[in-house]
Amino acid sequence: MAAAADASGPGVGAAFREGHVEADGLRIRYREAGDGPPLVHLHGASGLYLTPAHDQLSRRFRVIAFEMPGFGASPGSDRHDGAREMAATMGAAIAALGTGPVNLLGTSIGAKVGLWLALQGPERVTALVLEGPSGIRPEGTAPGAGAATPPSRESLAPLLHAHPDRLDAIALPDPATWAKTWPLVQRLRGPDRDADFESRLPALATPTLVLFGTRDGIVPPEIGRRYKELLPNSHLVYVYDAAHAIAADRPAAFTEVVEDFLERHEAFVISRADTVIFP
């Protein structure tokens, strides 16, 4: 469980319990807390780790954070050539939960998996939240693309976090786990531009919230506008002073906008802020 423990601060995720489902011939681990509408999380390249945002979201949602096969301590997965195949597996895992349609939060490469999952079965996804999605990238911007070994923790920390020094832990697994999962990360990430993938997005009617940190060092945040162009029912929100790991950098800001969007979908643009000072 090194991946999970490494990136969580003290007390983070304490209410989350371990669970497993059998799906697609694999035993797939998840961590779960809370009651309410189901919110499934698909992690990014760092693997499954919990942030204070998971705790905050679990007050309103039944949060199920999966570990995708091949990440963390789970056996390596050679059969997933890309996000599309991983989406089929994770779709089966969600079906095995027996919850019915879910809200789906995908982080970085998990966002690409989430988009494929929604494309493969739109009826299974109530709404999508994409946190720093990495499925579309300006050419040549992906750190470590094509390299046999992954970029170091030291080089990635300032790309993942706006202020790594302010955090208890960096959103990366231990070096051995990171090296083991690197080939799978590369396959899930796919090419910078995937014409087939992008051509399908205009048909996706699922309400979608696209979040980018203004200081994202992994995926240039300006690519957010491409999602807004392609996804007909999407909203783009910049989270100020967050880098790629938005939920770790600014958990309260992340939770507020995610909750509001999942509750109200496109009506979340209507302010409910109370500005009365003295009633």
């Binding site: 506008r225 783009l236 989270v239 100020y240 002073d241 800001a253 992340f254 643009v269 209507i270 302010s271």
Partner: peptide, 15 residues
């Protein structure tokens, strides 16, 4: 920014 966007700041918030 060419597309409508929201801003989730510390001191400013716009949808």
């Amino acid at each position: 920014e060419p597309q409508p966007f929201g801003w989730q700041g510390r001191h400013f918030r716009y949808r």
